[in-house]
Amino acid sequence: MPSLLLVMFVLQTVLHIINTVGASTINELLWVLYNKLPTPTSSSAQRVQILKREIVRLKRELAATSPQDNFSGWAKLDRQHNKATAEYQKLDASLRTHQTTFTSTVSTLRWLGTQGARFLLQMYFAKSPMFWVPAGWVPYYVEWILSFPRAPLGSVSINVWGIACASMLALVSEAVAASYVLATKKAVPVGEKKGEPMAFEAQPKGGAGKGAAREKEL
């Protein structure tokens, strides 16, 4: 039986990864992996990729073929292009319907395995101490906070332990990101965030620069 401390830490780690990477990105990755396996949609997904490349090739050949000089060849390419496009649109619509169902199922399972599991653990083990704080180490009000909401006084509750794990993971991820920036020397440009003005050094232009030069001479 794994330790409850470790279980909560793993749950918080998984939640941190999901929040950092993004649920939509994870869903897309799982969908791609799902289609790589021998599943009901794998053959359709492979056919869609083939048709996509075929449509691009036919578009290039159509653009390179003149309908005035070689109408029969152009018409043949146009029929092939229209046929491939119609098949692609039909398969793509079917795949999107399957993907919507897949994403809904994955999102539900992910919530049950992370947020739902954490909620159940916090409810079921609300009165169970994760570990005990040595007597006299912290004041009474700190002991009360650490045992919130229903753990024995003088212990650390599962809720507080979960918050501590989440805070530590956030600090570690920020430290890793900062270390990466320092190691690669790739600083974030000033004003990259939306709505923030870009920082540029004011450069005199044209007559304004000449006027400033004259004022300095005077």
Results as ranks from 00 to 15, higher is better:
L62K: 01
A63Y: 09
A64D: 15
A64N: 09
S66N: 12
S72F: 07
G73D: 07
G73V: 06
W74P: 00
K76H: 13
L77A: 05
Q80H: 00
K83D: 13
A86D: 12
A86Q: 14
E87R: 06
E87F: 02
Y88D: 03
Q89W: 10
S94H: 10
L95C: 14
Q99Y: 12
Q99R: 15
T100Q: 13
T100D: 12
F102Q: 04
S104K: 13
T105K: 09
V106D: 03
S107Q: 14
G113K: 07
T114I: 04
T114E: 05
A117N: 08
R118K: 14
R118C: 05
F119T: 14
L120W: 03
Q122L: 07
Q122R: 12
Y124H: 11
Y124V: 15
A126F: 01
S128C: 14
S128D: 10
M130W: 10
W132S: 06
P134H: 02
P134W: 01
Y140S: 09
Y141Q: 13
W144N: 15
I145W: 08
I145S: 15
L146K: 02
L146E: 07
F148D: 06
F148V: 03
P149D: 12
R150T: 07
A151R: 10
S155E: 01
S157G: 09
I158W: 01
N159F: 06
W161Y: 14
W161C: 05
I163H: 15
A166W: 05
L171P: 00
S173R: 15
E174R: 12
S179H: 10
Y180I: 06
L182K: 06
A183N: 10
